[in-house]
């Protein structure tokens, strides 16, 4: 298969591309993964600090977690770079159980999948399970929405009222976008500035063009390394946001649970022995354990 894939790069051999379709990666069972000596992870494309290319090489928190899982299983880690679709249902279909309409490739394991029982068992409008083709398991992180404020500008005001007067940035089509535009009868609407990524908003914050940015904690921290004291990351003002934090785990195809257990074993060990936190720290990001471990610790 490797040889055939290589031909995709050679325009003169594009005729062969037709035949590689039958050889595209399938989600595989545990024995096949071990025997093949590699495991393929689906990670989001261009999504720092979780998964991105640094000097052309895969990097990021999720990439490091994937590498560690692979090495503990004695196999090589490979990557399926996933372009985010409209929602997680679509991503699970594209990455785990069916493949995208264009190339039909799926990975063995998808990382950065929210771990939420309500979601995992959700039904569609006809009362049928929405995501019965995948198993979501092995929470390894708790992510949350935060606000980073420039307190030189917002001063002592800790609620949202200040954004009736001062500009706040969000990534377009994110939950904080909908929340800030809709909350308080729309009174913040004129001051909510939309950006293609949260990092574009952060650069305007650094440039003094914004008073605050709302986004995911890991991304805010990654985007503001060694930040000055006036840039304060907190969740004040987000009290009535529909979902303030959520756990993150993995997804595998529902028929390959044995592989899931093997991956789970590595993840549980990493969370418990502190290796997981070390990976987050190496990217300058605070680590919060998933809720499951709060209970276990008691």
């Amino acid at each position: 298969m490797g040889i055939l894939r290589a031909t995709l790069l050679l325009p003169t051999l594009c005729l062969l591309a037709v035949f590689t379709v039958v050889n595209t990666a399938q989600a595989r069972k545990y024995d096949d993964v071990i025997q093949s000596k590699y495991i393929e992870f689906a990670v989001y494309r261009d999504f720092p600090p979780y998964s991105f290319l640094k000097d052309g090489k895969p990097a990021g928190i999720d990439v490091d977690i994937g590498k560690r899982i692979a090495s503990d299983m004695g196999v090589e880690a490979r990557w399926l770079w996933l372009t985010a679709d409209e929602n997680l249902d679509d991503d699970l279909r594209n990455a785990v159980w069916k493949g995208s309409v264009v190339d039909r490739k799926v990975a063995d394991v998808m990382l950065r999948v929210p771990y939420d029982r309500e979601y995992a068992y959700a039904q569609d409008g006809y009362g049928l399970p929405r995501n019965d083709m995948v198993v979501m398991s092995s929470p390894y992180h708790k992510e949350s929405w935060k606000l980073v404020r420039d307190i030189n500008k917002t001063r002592k005001v800790r609620n949202l009222a200040i954004f009736q007067y001062q500009p706040i940035g969000v990534e377009i089509d994110s939950l904080p976008d909908f929340f800030l535009v809709g909350t308080l009868q729309g009174r913040l609407r004129e001051n909510v500035h939309h950006y293609p990524t949260v990092f574009a908003a952060i650069s305007d914050l650094k440039a003094g063009k914004l008073s605050a940015v709302a986004g995911m904690r890991s991304q805010l921290e990654w985007g503001l390394p060694n930040r000055s004291e006036n840039l304060d990351i907190d969740d004040d003002g987000l009290e009535s946001l529909g979902r303030k934090s959520w756990d993150i785990g993995i997804a595998i195809k529902d028929s390959y649970r044995q592989l899931g257990y093997a991956v789970d074993g590595v993840i549980v060990t990493m969370v418990k022995n502190g290796d997981m936190e070390k990976i987050f720290s190496s990217y300058g990001v605070s680590y919060e354990q998933p809720s499951m471990y709060d209970v276990a610790a008691e």
Binding site: Y44, F47, Y50, A84, E86, N87, L88, D91, R112, V113, P114, D116, E118, Y119, A122, D124, G125, Y126, E143, W145, D173, S174, L175, F178, F179, M216, G242, R243, W246, I248
Partner: peptide, 22 residues
């Protein structure tokens, strides 16, 4: 179509508010 706001939803690793419809 039945259409409603669907709070149990995620997008690119983040909690999201989508529309549900049938």
């Amino acid at each position: 179509m039945d259409i409603w706001n669907e709070p149990v939803n995620y997008k690119k690793g983040a909690a999201y508010l989508g529309a549900g419809f049938t």
